[in-house]
Amino acid sequence: MTTVKICSGTLCYVMGGSELWTLPEALPAELKDRVTVKGSPCLGYCNNEKPVKAPYVEVNGKVIREASVSKIIEVIKDEIGGK
């Protein structure tokens, strides 16, 4: 199972993260049963990276910077394909 963690921190949310919460609906049918999507408390990248590249998402612990729904789906596909 692939786990996606979406940062629910304020900064990620205002930097485009708000649309990431539609990910479960946007997942292609063949991926739906193979992915768990969770919300996460602030993942902490915003205070440790310069320049800030919010919104941040983690897929199986790997960070995606400036995440978008399509970017996340690509990474999920890579993860599942690579296994």
Binding site: P24, V37, P41
Partner: peptide
């Protein structure tokens, strides 16, 4: 633990 909800 904090459980983050998903209902936006």
């Amino acid at each position: 633990e904090i459980e983050v909800g998903f209902d936006v």
